[in-house]
Design a protein around this nucleic acid. Sequence first.
DNA 1: TCTACGATCTTT
DNA 2: AAGATCGTAGAT
Length: 195
Amino acid sequence: MSLLPQDWYARDVVQVARELLGMRLRRGAVTLRITEVEAYLGPHDSACHTAKGRTTRNRAMWGPPGHAYVYVCYGLHQMLNVVAGVVPGSAVLIRACEPVAGLGLVRRRRGGLNGPALLAGPGRVGAALGLDTGFCGHALFMPGGLELLEGRPPARVAVGRRVGIDNARPRDVRARLRFADADSAWVSHRGKLRP
DNA sequence: TCTACGATCTTT
DNA sequence: AAGATCGTAGAT
C-alpha cells in the first residue's frame, strides 16, 4: 500500500534524499522507517561511484530513477542506494532506519543484538533486509520484493558531511549532503550532525 | 591472472 | 587502533 510512484524519484536528488526520511522500506515481514540518508550527485561528484564512468558494478546507477543500486563494500556489507534525481548517475544511500515491523526477524539475522546497533549504519540496513547484489536494478515502485512506501516525515532534519569519503575532492568531502531524523536514536555518527 | 582498495563494522 | 573479508576495477 502507498508505493511511491516512479516519477517521485525523478526530481532533484538532494530534495529526494531529504524526503526519503520517514518513508518506509518493506521486504517480506520486515518494514523499516528511513532515518538517515546521503545524496550522491552524479559524475561531477567525486565521492559518487559514477564519477569514474560506467562499470559493471554501477550499471543500475545510470538507469532510470526508482530502482535499487546495491553494491558490496569491504567484501561483506550490502549497501542499499535508491537511484534518483534528474542527473543520470545520481542516487541516495540509505544509511540508517528504525524498526516498524519484523523486529524479531531482524534480531535473528543480527545474532540477537538490540538497539541502534541493529539498524544504524548502511551495512546493518542491508543485513536487516537480507539484501544482496541480486537486488541491483530492482524496481522499488512495483509491488513485490523490496518496496518503498510512504511514511511520516521527521519533525526536524539534522545535516552533516557524508561519511567515509575522505579521498574525494575537498569540496565534495565538505558538502553537507547527509540528512537524518534529528529526533531518532536510530542514526549513525550522531555527533557529527547539526540542525 | 594479479593486485590494491573500499560510501563499514566489530573487536581490542 | 586495527583486523576482518572479498567483490570490483584497473593494470598486466
